[in-house]
Design a protein around this nucleic acid. Sequence first.
DNA 1: TTTAGGG
DNA 2: CCCTAAA
Length: 544
Amino acid sequence: MQAIICLRMPRIHSSFNILIRWRSSQLRHLRFCGNCFPLFGYDPLPAHIRWPMARAVPFTMNMIALAISVATFVENPLPSSLLFSGELFNLDNIENQLLLAGGLWSAARDDDENSSGCTQPSTTKTAFRPSPRIGDRRIRKILASKFWKAAPKLKDGEYFTAETKPGYHNRKNCYKRKRSLRDYPLKKRILYDGRSLSNSDGGITSEGISSSPRKGFSCDASGSGATLHGAFGTTSGVASRHTPFQSRDSHVKLRIRSFKVPVFIEIPETATVGSLKRSVMEAVDAILGGGLRVGVLLQGKKIRDDNKTLLQTGLAHNNKLDALGLSLEPTVSQSPPPLCNEDHPLLLSCNAPQPLTRYPPVPSVVHNIVEQSAADALPDPPSTSVGSFVESDHDSAPSPPDMSDKSPMDSRALVAIPEMDAEALAVVPMRKSKRSEAVQRRIRRPFSVSEVEALVHAVEKLGTGRWRDVKLRAFDNAKHRTYVDLKDKWKTLVHTARISPQQRRGEPVPQVLLDRVLDAHAYWSQQQAKQQLKQQSDTCRLLL
DNA sequence: TTTAGGG
DNA sequence: CCCTAAA
């Protein structure tokens, strides 16, 4: 059985969709967290199943787990914990469930309702409240959504019973830290390829799933999204029962080629070169002399827990090392600045050098080189290739010139980070920080008159509700025109046709075309209205 | 995946 | 053009 789980993180942090596709599933709906999620099947097999939880439920770890468990072991219980991005989530803990929702929610527990999705009784109170820094109104919409209340209750044990999940006692392992969605790439995808265990069709997958109870998802930050392959962090899951533990001790090899220590200096233009040198020296002295400590960042997030293993943080994974950043930081005795704060650059005035401690740490960045990654890495499941799931916009957007940092001499080596401004520096010493994470807007491509003509013609024929057909009919070879584009263009055409010619912009569309637009629009609107009436009367008849 | 609409 | 709910 194959499953692809797709986690989309919208640019604006709202909620998430999980898309599950698999073949040969008989499931009509899923029960989870006291809610019944219909599974929509599209066409014959392979069934395309959508789990439209986007508005209903904020994304939770449990849902990943559920989705995966459904996709892989339909009969099996939800794992009790999940290793994700190197972090261990106890799935019985509501807080953890909500953690991955990106700090959208803070939750305290309240267990009078079993609608929380936790099978574990508890005594605290649950309250969902948005994280203060979230301002998106959509969040509030979700909050206000009747969903939480409307959720049909689920009898205990109806789907996931307490027995399916073994007891978990290490609440302390739970992550108290709230993560901001800001810490995540704007768009992230999780791909998962798992096969049911009974389906012993290959060492690779079955090993990936079952033989590594301590291994979680590995993250590969290539492309515009992160690809994760996963195995559950099962504590006593079905999966781990099947295979013996493997405890080879493997090593992750790093080679740090250079540290870059950005120093910002303000110096009058009348200053001499000598004084410039001195200033630089002072600044560097200030940094180095004040004592240094090493910071470790993963995907731009600082890893503060020194007790975590590389394995746990996910750093043991080859591809994860790309996302590893090391920094030299001055040892500041003060409390560190808030995490999400923009770190100010190290600004040293040459006239009056400030004490170093005034500046937040993040002065330097490192380039680490992955010489060779541990041999312990899970054999990569088949769908490792990230590329296939990354939008390829090659036809539309000429790739920006900046990313030429991949030096061919050493494919494994991260090259020195290009000059960064303070902002970028403060963010992440990661290779593809800005561009690949923020999926760039497609380049604008105004419709030519001939395109408009083709569009009008097709719509005249097909109507305004069959944009896919319009695309196929009239724009099949125009790769950059999607049916959504066509629909949008029609919208603007209608608008254009209604406004006065003086208000129109861009290449003028012949009035005759615009007239046809209005005609077609009127005609098909009428058709739609008729259809609706017909449907209404039909339903009425059914009710009577 | 496609449709439909708001942003 | 983007985003995404809903089907």
